[in-house]
């Protein structure tokens, strides 16, 4: 108990330190710190690298201008083309569950605005991300390109994965589908993990973890995720 408390203090101190330095040039610093504290730590997101990454990535840069003031709220936001940026908790949970490490090569299916890829890029060596909507892919490539040199963005159908860049230690599927594409399972390393949200944005969501161990592939349906629906995409079109 004492140990956990100490960890919490150290971590908060670390984040606070970052915040003090950046506060002058980042008007959302305080909100981001609060997001980490109230939406992630308070809900059992404790993976240190994940918390650090989410405390670092300026989420407001990954949402449309009209949505920036809502960027750190506990809800997903529309990014156009019928897509959303997941609520911070989902991003945190999905990142924590795959236990990313610096040496990892991670594939993301469904770049969207690029936020999840940015969080991963703070932690791992290589992030490959695929977006099916060309316009979203272009925007994400531009924004991610300004901050990261370890992220590659491809526009195309995520069904086929990214064979030449694989195999992957982890695959994060941000857009749920009613089937798991066989090429993705194929491109997952032995011992690799794939995380997928199951359910539409308006439901009480479940997450599914797929693990590949030798010849066996198992799934684990994880806790229901609280979810708040977002505002209409056309407002910021």
């Amino acid at each position: 108990m004492y140990y956990l408390g100490l960890k919490f203090l150290l971590l908060t101190g670390c984040l606070l330190g970052y915040g003090t330095a950046a506060a002058q040039r980042d008007p959302y610093e305080a909100e981001r710190r609060q997001m980490v504290r109230t939406q992630l730590q308070a809900r059992d997101i404790h993976h240190r690298a994940t918390l650090r990454a989410m405390g670092t990535v300026p989420r407001h840069l990954y949402v449309p201008a009209a949505q920036q003031r809502f960027a750190y709220q506990d809800r997903p936001l529309p990014i156009g083309y019928g897509q959303t940026i997941s609520q911070p908790y989902i991003v945190g949970y999905m990142t924590q569950i795959i236990r990313p490490e610096a040496r990892h090569n991670v594939l993301e299916i469904g770049t969207g605005s690029g936020y999840q890829a940015a969080v991963l890029a703070e932690i791992v060596d290589q992030v490959h991300t695929i977006e099916i909507v060309p316009e979203l892919g272009q925007t994400a490539r531009r924004v991610l390109g300004q901050h990261y040199d370890n992220v590659r963005v491809k526009t195309g159908d995520g069904y086929y994965g990214w064979e030449e860049a694989g195999p992957f230690d982890a695959i994060v599927v941000t857009a749920a589908a009613e089937y798991i594409p066989p090429p993705l399972v194929e491109q997952l390393k032995d011992g690799g993990k794939m995380i997928i949200p199951v359910g539409s944005p308006f439901q009480v969501q479940l997450l599914m973890l797929v693990e590949k161990k030798g010849s066996d592939i198992t799934t684990r349906t994880l806790m229901p995720v609280r979810f708040v629906p977002f505002t209409r995409a056309s407002q910021d079109q």
Binding site: D157, Y159, E178, I180, P182, V185, I217, T219
Partner: peptide, 17 residues
Amino acid sequence: PALRYAPALSLAYTGAI
């Protein structure tokens, strides 16, 4: 080109959808 149908397809399936 991206419309496919295979509800909760087995993870043992290795062919194309």
